[in-house]
């Protein structure tokens, strides 16, 4: 076979591989971006429950005093989230505000057992629990996609294509620092 033809075939294969790797990096970056937007969408679902919480606080005056501040804190934290910018610190703030609110509601139930019998309160607690499960799942999907993206730009020969063409940096996975603080073990990476 003509040596120039062999060269052309090899060159064609290399170009094709570079195109595939380049597009792969773009698609994984977009998947991570979409997963992030998904996390934010799930977080914003919390706005749905705030009016119901207001109804409850109107019914139980004493309940209002402790929980009202926490609702305001959650609302403000939700306002700081952006689906464009992957800010895991802001996400941690929302998660912390949610945890405080749920904790406040549990304390309120202990102090005012009649709340337990309130149908709306029961539905609200169920909705909050499901929302938290969905947020947990959305974060898991985001972290999975970030891992796939990071692998896609750090492994050879993807790293070569990325450094020459895509020029993307690794993304940070979401870590819950409050939950992490409960462990003595700290991974050394």
């Amino acid at each position: 076979m003509n040596s120039s033809l062999v060269f052309l075939i090899v060159f064609g294969v290399v170009i094709l591989a570079v195109i595939l790797i380049y597009n792969g990096i773009i698609s994984r970056a977009n998947a991570a971006q979409r997963a992030w937007a998904n996390v934010i969408t799930q977080e914003r679902q919390k706005n749905k429950i705030i009016p119901h919480l207001q109804t409850i606080t109107d019914q139980y005056q004493q309940f209002e005093s402790g929980v009202q501040e926490k609702i305001a804190a959650l609302r403000s934290a939700l306002g700081g989230l952006s689906s464009e910018k992957m800010d895991t610190a802001k996400l941690a703030e929302v998660e912390s505000a949610t945890r405080n609110l749920v904790q406040g509601m549990h304390i309120a139930v202990e102090n005012y057992p009649e709340l337990k019998a309130n149908e709306l309160f029961g539905k609200l607690m169920r909705e909050i629990a499901e929302q938290q499960e969905n947020i947990g799942a959305a974060i898991r999907i985001f972290n999975q996609n970030v891992e796939a993206f990071n692998n896609g730009i750090e492994m050879f020969p993807h790293s070569l294509v990325n450094s020459l063409l895509n020029k993307k940096s690794t993304l940070h996975t979401f870590n819950d620092s409050e939950a992490e603080a409960g462990f003595d073990y700290k991974p050394n990476f």
């Binding site: 994984r28 998947a31 979409r34 997963a35 937007a37 998904n38 799930q42 499901e130 499960e133 969905n134 947020i135 947990g136 799942a137 959305a138 898991r140 999907i141 985001f142 999975q144 996609n145 796939a148």
Partner: peptide, 30 residues
């Protein structure tokens, strides 16, 4: 859905995209 892992393993088809999107919440996907 947004999960790369899910899309690698499964194909989703539906009579309309919206009902699939509504059903496939993150918790359902995982």
């Amino acid at each position: 859905p947004a999960s790369v892992e899910f899309n690698r393993k499964f194909k989703v088809s539906a009579s309309d995209e919206l009902s699939a999107a509504k059903f496939l919440k993150p918790a359902v996907v995982v």
